[in-house]
Amino acid sequence: MLTLDFEFTRGAFTLRARCEVGATVTGICGPSGAGKSTLLAHIAGLLKPARGRIVFDDQVLFDSSARVFVPAHQRHFGLVFQDGQLFPHLTVRANLLYGQKHLMADQRRFDLRTVLDLLEIDHLLERRPGQLSGGERQRVALGRALLYSPRLLLLDEPLSSLDRRLKAQILPFLKRIRDETGIPMLYVTHAREEITALDGEIVEMEAGMLPAA
């Protein structure tokens, strides 16, 4: 359960997010420019809200009145960017293992083999990100986030850089992740049908206002 109640600035605007996220898949929908990616960056801990609280399960991640701020690398959330953001100087294998490598053994929920099979990226292991297609890149980015065994998976328009055919190819993988890992997902998109396809709950975001769901 993720409880959001905070204000953040984006450019000259102050936006407000206030909702509880409890479903396995929650989609935050809204037009481009509504501040969806900025919202996600705040949840991930990459940006610090102006004021308010962010609580995940029983852990306070941000509380402006108590001066609590847990930075991104201690939140243990996975974040998949729009264009994957694979590390260009590392092989696919090194990319996949980047987050997992420093986990304690008891924190590792998946091994490489499982993720390779789940996302069908076995044959890409020794390649570099520059040699991957858009769809392959997104699958590797998903795999990298999964191997980190996150408590929550944040997806920032993970399909928007792909064409219709590739979108249709990746969606089943997202379903598999939902069904086989049980990791809750917070999915930001302007395409509602992606959330519908994942049977997710939809929260509307308009002009930076994220109302109580």
């Binding site: 960056a41 991930a44 801990g45 990459l46 930075p71 991104a72 690398h73 201690q74 939140r75 243990h76 959330f77 996975g78 974040l79 960017f81 953001q85 590390f87 260009p88 980047y98 987050g99 420093h102 986990l103 990298r144 986030a145 980190y148 944040l154």
Partner: peptide, 15 residues
């Protein structure tokens, strides 16, 4: 690209 550094941070990497 700063998002590469951000991606690393969201994978648990300290600064």
């Amino acid at each position: 690209d700063r998002r590469l550094e951000q991606a690393a941070a969201t994978l648990g990497a300290s600064p």
